[in-house]
Design a binder for these strands. Structure first.
Lengths: 247, 247
DNA sequence: CATCCCCGAATTGTTCAACAATTCTTCGAT
DNA sequence: ATCGAAGAATTGTTGAACAATTCGGGGATG
């Protein structure tokens, strides 16, 4: 057992560290105060988190095969643990298991992209039509400003991030744990094919105004109008995606 | 009662003795199904399916602990495979993992129940407001009739099943794979705490008329009205659930 | 009598090694 | 050049092992 044992050496630098990889949503749950539990995630969970990260960064391209032994060696964890992580990721649709053939990074064809947008239309529009507490509306506003700042700094990566935060904040208006995680998974799926789109440096740029208008309508309490705007936004966004990905 | 090792559909039988791990799985004669490429799910998947079933039947009560070694022995599969199945179920929220303590059947408190209904209000109402193809509407009608037949036969179990089919069919109107699986998971979660409710033999009975009215509105193309009815239905249903479960 | 601590017992988390079953590849025969 | 069969590679699954952790039960102590 001469192999490294330090927690997840990782192939792309000492990532592992950090705390909650997929957090961003439920930062502090109301009510559960005495939860000083420093629950160290299991190795399988950390492996899954690492892969999720590499997936989000476009380091692992859709369709690419993930060989158990390779990842096992690269991350210094046993093949069995890798399989547990795969089960997690497969449940999130980020990877697909082909029996006896291996797991592959999920590929989203035109049909799948449409399906993702269908879910978004359902959830996001319903969420914004329901409105939310002032703090939650403020969170939406914060995401808009975050996007504006990123645009000013010409940071396309941050711009894409801010855009996702914007839509996450909209769903968070409903204050539902389950809806939040559903949305988080959908956004994770979208990152899978958004890398193709961001080659165009000004891809998100055009969304800035839309986000601003939607946010204003929301703040003004014109929820139906906000919903209509958001719906139009999603339709156009889907159209663009379809254009980028061969029909 | 149902004792006996509910051994995995397939076989595995009471081999118990671990001396011969050899296949006992595929009992199907290869000659008969030469054409049918029936992708046999992995053992881990079948274990997960079996547990899902026991969960749905109320054989495993919320809060109950699932010991790896016990299930491993009961189902005749290795502990490692059990863990893979657990990862699946945990991703579906049907069980919860307490680090170093084990996995437990998920318990849904009042807050969780409200959350489940929030998701249902979002998805089901949006789905019915969007309408659907005639075949899909017909599927909703079929679920209504299924419920009527179950009521006539005084089969409460079938009645509950039909009710779930009804709501599944409503979501299926949208024709979205992802929404369908999301709804399936939500319904699976609900089965966790519905067993408490069905002690009242006439629990679902009162829903029959509501379903009929909703279906009629849907068939008549009065989608907004159908949505309103469904929304009211869900609110009342949540109220009842909250009443049954000590608030 | 109550409290605390330490020590076993049981269970989980993780690894390793092995093997059957299946798929992929390559090479050779027709 | 096509086809098929031997061989290599990979997955699916098992079993055993061990460290780490939690749980429960005595004592020993105050």
């Amino acid at each position: 057992m001469t192999s490294a044992e330090s927690g997840l050496p990782g192939s792309s630098g000492p990532t592992a560290a950090g705390s909650n990889p997929a957090s961003g949503l439920a930062a502090a749950a109301p009510g559960s105060a005495a939860r000083l539990r420093l629950a160290v995630p299991s190795v399988a969970d950390r492996v899954a988190a690492e892969l999720r990260l590499q997936l989000a960064e476009g380091l692992l391209l859709p369709g690419q095969r993930l060989t158990e032994s390779t990842i096992s060696a690269e991350l210094g964890v046993s093949r069995n643990t890798i399989r547990e992580a795969f089960a997690e990721l497969a449940a999130e649709r980020l990877v697909v298991r082909h029996p006896n053939r291996g797991v592959f990074v999920a590929t989203l064809g035109p049909g799948e992209i449409h399906d993702v947008y269908t879910v978004r239309r359902f959830i996001e529009v319903s969420a914004i039509r329901g409105g939310g507490s002032p703090e939650r509306v403020a969170a939406v506003r914060a995401a808009v400003e975050e996007g504006r700042a990123a645009a000013a700094a010409d940071d396309e990566e941050a711009l894409g991030s801010a855009n996702q935060h914007f839509h996450g904040a909209i769903v968070a208006l409903a204050g539902s744990r389950r809806l939040n995680t559903i949305m988080a998974q959908i956004l994770a799926e979208m990152r899978l094919f958004f890398h193709k789109a961001t080659v165009d440096a000004h891809f998100y740029r055009s969304y800035l105004d839309d986000n601003e208008k939607i946010c204003q309508a929301l703040e003004a309490g014109r929820l139906d109008r906000a919903g209509d705007l958001l719906l139009a936004y999603l339709n156009i966004s889907e159209e663009k995606q379809r254009a980028v990905h061969g029909d």
